[in-house]
């Protein structure tokens, strides 16, 4: 009965996804399309939950539904709101799309059924990861263990990518000027409600950061949630006050510091003649070393993601709108 319910939910959510994308093809108001994309992220995160990917659902909800929507809206403020319908190449698009889709469908026909425990993917690497996590790392969350320890190189690369994206946005848009911006009107109800809410968000961010070993969560998600708290502050109280709380100038340094914490954690193992990012070297007890290493690495990731996300938000929202006639 439970498996049937899972399947029903799966089919319904996929149908929702198709409906949302179809509607966003038709709607020309980019504001509405952005909001529909927010819903799209929400529904896909639900789908990830249904398919057992708890951590991914967490990340997709925080990053996709939360931050991407805010980012696209602040970019829309700087550009135009309506799409020009005359400039549509529907005739060019349709045959290409249909041909590609048919080819992909032909390729998919050979795949094993969904949920098949005998599929090739489940026999290579994955059983080792599950076994070794229990033996050598001894934390409940396998995803965190693989992310921070087994595939630590990868995650280091991702952190550097995020850092360089922040640097690229900074180079393209700059920090922005605050004083000439239009501040939000004073709304007492929002002010009263949002203050405890921000406290709650920040505490929740810390919880996600340090609870990542035991349940869903980790540095990536915590960084985004923590940044969302400050974004909320800036939305309600105005950019001027937000930049007094966290000055924009220290954000690039914090971001670099985050990457540095990750890198130095890796370098520590080189001192005692172990490979890069081998946390066994951090402590006399290998399991304790792994725990310490994962904690440090997640802290670095959290710091880097938090400051980069906030930096990108500041860059977009601090930029002056140029009017063309």
């Amino acid at each position: 009965m439970i498996a049937n319910l899972e399947l029903v939910i799966d089919i319904c959510l996929l149908a929702f996804l198709i409906m949302i994308v179809f509607a966003s093809i038709k709607i020309t108001d980019l504001f509405a399309v952005t909001m529909l994309f927010g819903i799209f992220s929400f529904v896909s995160a639900l789908l990830f939950l249904d398919l057992d990917a708890v951590d991914v659902a967490f990340t997709e909800a925080a990053v996709g539904a939360g931050f991407t929507t805010v980012l696209m809206l602040s970019a829309l403020r700087l550009t135009t709101r309506f799409e020009n319908v005359k400039h549509r190449h529907s005739l060019l698009g349709l045959p290409i799309v249909i041909l590609t889709g048919a080819a992909l469908l032909y390729g998919v026909a050979d795949f094993p059924n969904m949920g098949d425990a005998n599929a090739p993917i489940h026999h290579h690497l994955a059983p080792d990861f599950i076994r070794l996590t229990q033996q050598k790392i001894d934390i409940p969350n396998i995803v965190t263990a693989v992310l921070a320890s087994f595939r630590g190189y990868d995650t280091f690369g991702e952190t550097v990518v995020i850092f360089s994206a922040g640097a690229a946005v900074l180079m393209l848009l700059g920090m922005g000027h605050v004083e000439r911006k239009q501040e939000p009107e004073k709304n007492l109800i929002l002010w009263v409600v949002v203050k405890p809410m921000i406290a709650l968000i920040l505490i929740f961010g810390l919880y996600v950061q340090f609870h990542g070993d035991f349940g869903a969560g980790g540095g990536f998600q915590a960084g985004v949630i923590f940044a969302s708290g400050f974004i909320l502050y800036s939305l309600v109280f105005g950019e001027t006050y937000a930049r007094k709380v966290i000055p924009a100038t220290i954000l690039p340094r914090l971001s670099a510091l985050g990457v540095l914490i990750y890198g130095v954690t890796g370098l520590m193992s080189l001192i005692s003649n172990k490979p890069f990012l081998d946390y066994n070297a951090l402590s006399s007890n290998p399991v304790g070393g792994q725990h310490l290493g994962i904690l440090l690495v997640e802290a670095g990731v959290g710091l880097a993601v938090f400051s980069t996300i906030l930096l990108i938000y500041y860059s977009f929202s601090g930029r002056e709108v140029i009017h063309y006639e």
Partner: peptide, 8 residues
Amino acid sequence: IQTETGVS
């Protein structure tokens, strides 16, 4: 309805 532009 008419004053709202760009709504499908």
